[in-house]
Amino acid sequence: MTIKTSNAGVTVIKKLFSRHETFVFLAIVIFGLIITVVNPDFLTLENVFDLLKSYALMGTFAVGMLFVLISGGIDISFTAIATITGYVIAVLLLQNGEQLNIVSVFAIAGGVGVLLGIINALIIYYFNIPSIITTIATLNIYYGLLTVISKGKWLYGFPAWFGQYTQMYVFKFTAANGTSYGLSVITAFWFVLMLIAWFVLRYTVLGRSIYAMGGNSASAKRAGFNLLRLNLFVYGFMGLMAGFGSVIQALLVQTVAPNSLVGKELDVVAAVVLGGASLTGGTGSVLGTFLGVVLIAIMGNGLTLMRVPAFWYKVVIGTVILISVGASAYRRKVSARRRTIIEVE
């Protein structure tokens, strides 16, 4: 009798544990506990809000990367795209910064980003070149040309109105010692992007088509999906996020440098992959991606707070990625096997 009554609970738990996000969440809790035990400074609201602000950049890139991975591709040129859009807005801000406002800055950066992303999409679609090779090439083209044209100069000294956004909060607390902290508008912007992405992926035809293309692009094509349009959207969207990210970076550090983003593309791929997205099979979710970014953030921050030397950071991230990818691949394999058995019966 008791078994029967607990059945509902068991299925809920079973369902929960069939989801990748649950494991990422558990990993976050475990890591969080360990870090807090070693250094109680970790689990303070101040630190949490701080992390959410400084990782809004990676989080924004990750939203774009999620779409690309779900579609079955990969894009590592986005850091170069973001560097270009960063330069474009920096030059405009320095030349006639008073005529611009935050909306136009985002629009310009996003627009340039979309254009560069579309170049990727056209090459990948029309010449059937694997996305990894295409974007390795365009990463070097975009970055090489930018460095030649900009001569590697750092740009700073933006107008005052551009600086104020780092100190703007949706809501704010004041600690006993007088320092104030809260939910930054930059974090809020990232959250809004995630909400939009979640809605598009879950409730629109466009979103479902991207999953279909990632699941099996040949069948998706036969089923009548317009793969050109989907590719344009996915890589264009990645470009848009790269452009937005470059504005966030410029807001956070008030400087645009040629080498501040390029080289970090794999960290973003890592975060999204940690969150359960895979290159094969049209899987991945916004919630998972958010948890992946959070996991990377607390590992980076936690190692610092635990006074672990910085060069161990990559070892930890690499190990966690391999375990995560390995575990989800293994589960996929087991469930595929189970499915075939049912078919036989």
Partner: peptide, 29 residues
Amino acid sequence: LIAHLEISPILATLGTMILVSGLALAITK
């Protein structure tokens, strides 16, 4: 990772790349 866990080569070698270059960095500081 690629043959037995059937992870896509891009992701598998990306993971080992981060891990291995991390080890190289940690060993040599």
